[in-house]
Design a protein around this nucleic acid. Sequence first.
DNA 1: AGGGTGACCCGCT
DNA 2: CAGCGGGCCACCC
Length: 98
Amino acid sequence: MKVGKTFQEKIYQVVAKIPKGRVLSYKEVARRGGNAQACRVEGNIMNRHNIKGLPCHRVIRSDGRVGGYKWGTKKKIKRLQAEGVKISKDGKIIGFKR
DNA sequence: AGGGTGACCCGCT
DNA sequence: CAGCGGGCCACCC
């Protein structure tokens, strides 16, 4: 029995509910979405459809890095810092627990 | 309309 | 340490 909703919908809901100043890893989001192995799709969706209102910059890799970004990883880091997220010089998320 | 590949990845061997 | 498979979406031809 299928829920009917596509992965994008689930991902959208999860990511959109990320509190400000908090970051989630792709795997975490994917896990909540139902398939932890679909982590690639997340990036793909956001990359092709940088949905407005979706704080995709709050989604980072499990390694603690910010990962990639359609508009540029640097931009992503800057954005996170503006939200209050501490980021190391190497672009590592400080205070991120996987 | 259909097939094939890329993509902001992760975990295992 | 390096390499690859895995599942889902959108775009290209």
